[in-house]
Nucleic acid binder design. Structure first.
Lengths: 220, 220
DNA sequence: ACGAACATACCAACTGGTTGGTATGTGAGC
DNA sequence: GCTCACATACCAACCAGTTGGTATGTTCGT
């Protein structure tokens, strides 16, 4: 049986931890290897450069978080709006313990690499926006469910949820306390609730529902 | 006439630019001096260490942005809610050009220093939260104006606006485009509008207005 | 069935350039 | 003539990346 490449995985996991703790640039390859319990030789066996590790770390982060959210139970809710709110609740429940344990590897890394390391920026961007994309169908279904004529798109709201979360992490770091992040997530939840509550009360009529459906078709 | 300490100011401005472009850790002292057009001797004449420069850069950022917002015209609006919305509009109008020209020095720096450089974290935190504080009075006045019973505080909404902005900057960096940031600011504006619109329609009664005032008093 | 050739997975020691920081010098103004 | 505001020259530590290995397989011709 072929020996599995254990060192590569250990390096990627150690990279996640170090990037969350001190960022990509402050993390040295030596330090990363020490944390992973491998030597530098192993590092450069799997990655041609530190840059390449950054890209791999972002991709691996996508895989890890993708699996986490794909198997989450919030998908089971019958109402689309409930699924969206349950996603936000799940995100909220993950905000606990040390900041470095709940903050986002991609968001942290992209802040300091977006200009000098385009490949890393791209990988982080894909990670964040692909994740946002997993919300779009539920948001669109919620719009349809309620027959809303919205001046915003499902995609922009999905993206906005990620903006709030990323911003919440920044504020948590700035204050040195997770509580402030929770408050922003609460505001996000309230926003989504209001968005559908008011729209459904004011605009849920057969006429507007039909107009909404028509607009959606032309957008695609 | 005494020569003003020009080098210090040039170093702080260059630091703002470099931190926005590549972050605090990736910015070397040599590079910073080159950008500022001074020598390393000048740097260590004014700052005992790179850390100390980081703190000074955050404080200077507070001063620069503080002056910008203090003299802005949105304070002149007669309605408190309009002042809050006009603040958001101002923030929106500032999001243009290169990402490094509108992103936040404090938010960028704190992401990569919050754990290893506590003094910088503190300075960045003060910068962000003190700025948020300048919104609290207007938000509270808007709550009073409309006689709202809110389950959120003026302070938490003020903080939330900063979370959205910081998150919008992260997303702009991740996508390499400012447009995505504008969309999040629009969602923030819509949230604030909904918050006061729905509350005023549903809860604006003499009874709840009195209860709101009482609650505020006990919170202090 | 077997061994030569090759591939994978890793390690220890090294290198040249860069880093933050220091020691010392200099010239202009009060 | 002394201090403030810088400049020059330098250093030890650290940095990403390289070199040259070993141990453990796997492939394939015979």
């Amino acid at each position: 049986m072929v020996r599995p490449p254990a060192a590569r995985d250990k390096l990627l996991c150690a990279a996640h931890a170090l990037i969350r703790e001190k960022g990509f640039n402050a993390m040295s390859v030596d330090e990363l290897c020490a944390r992973a319990g491998v030597t530098k030789g192993a590092f450069f066996h799997y990655f041609r450069s530190k840059d390449e590790l950054g890209v791999a770390a972002a991709i691996h982060w996508s895989v890890v978080t993708g699996a986490l959210f794909a198997q989450a139970e919030y998908h089971a809710r019958s109402s689309a709006l409930e699924r969206v709110l349950a996603y936000i609740d799940l995100r909220r429940s993950l905000v606990r313990g040390e900041i470095a344990e709940f903050s986002c590897v991609a968001g942290t890394m992209v802040q300091e690499t977006y200009r000098e390391h385009p490949a890393i920026r791209e990988a982080c961007g894909a990670c964040i926006f692909d994740h946002a994309q997993t919300l779009v169908d539920d948001i669109q279904a919620a719009i349809d469910e309620r027959g809303i004529v919205a001046e915003w798109t499902a995609e922009s709201l999905a993206t906005h949820t990620q903006a709030v979360l990323q911003g919440a992490f920044v504020l948590a770091k700035a204050r040195g306390d997770a509580a402030v992040a929770l408050e922003s997530v609460d505001h996000l939840r309230r926003y989504v609730t209001l968005l559908f509550a008011t729209a459904s009360q004011r605009e849920r009529t057969p006429t507007t529902a039909r107009r909404s459906a028509a607009r959606r078709r032309t957008q695609t």
